[in-house]
Amino acid sequence: MSIIIKNLCYTYGTGSLFEVAALLDVNLEINDGEYVGLIGHTGSGKSTLAQHLNGLLRPSSGEIMVEGIDLTNKKADLMAVRQRVGLVFQYPEYQLFEETIYKDIAFGPKNLKLPEAEIKERVYEAMTLVGLDHSLAERSPFELSGGQKRRAAIAGVLSMRPKTLVLDEPIAGLDPQGKKEILTLIDQYHEQYGATIVIISHNMDDIAKVADRVVVMNKGTKAMDGTPKEIFSRHDELLGMGLGLPQMAEVVRELNKRGKNVPTDIITQDQLFAYIQTHRAV
């Protein structure tokens, strides 16, 4: 089992004027190889939860076990956790700092104290994974385009070969082509290495397409947990939480308002199209 979280609570600024309970009694288990979409309104605790997964934040109370490492233990080996769980922040291109792309991607493996030869192998492997031409290795990160920078930043995390990859809004601010490329590379990493993926996103359509499991956070607690079909069919609940629906789910909703009785577990364009085709001649 990759990640086991029990009764996790986290409060920001304990004891100060600005005390905020960000996570309240969260219970979650993520298995090896799962592709999880983590959704929720702003402030629901998604990012806070994500930062617990690699030990950046420690729980105020509760238990959390990541890849066999108990993160409630003060002496937990953080370097090991961060190698096993890679976390890509929102707009990761803003963390690039090295003189060359090669050096920046090598930052992670270097911190892991790996030998030069291995570092070299990993850097080029990561560049291939994210679709960056190897010729760019000696260029300065600041010379690259926005899309290339983002891919370089993701490569910087992939070079650590994490077993679990957590991405916070990986496609924020990208054009449709860019979005497609990033989602494809995440998928590739998932398939190639059997990695566990956790994506935080506001984009319901993308989650509906790629995730096998959806976890919905609401006001610091886990509100829903299930397959995309199960979760996105609960239209009213999701809208009540201030969340949107996948576009097709909205179409289904409108159709049903007009008495069409379309099953609510239809969430993608292909599914809707198939349904309409088989129910057309009435």
């Binding site: 370097m79 961060r82 190698q83 976390l87 803003y94 963390q95 992670g108 911190n111 910087g156």
Partner: peptide, 13 residues
């Protein structure tokens, strides 16, 4: 804070 966390996530101490 954000940058520190991002670099810590890559093993920076």
């Amino acid at each position: 804070d954000k940058i520190m966390k991002a670099q810590s996530a890559r093993g920076a101490v």
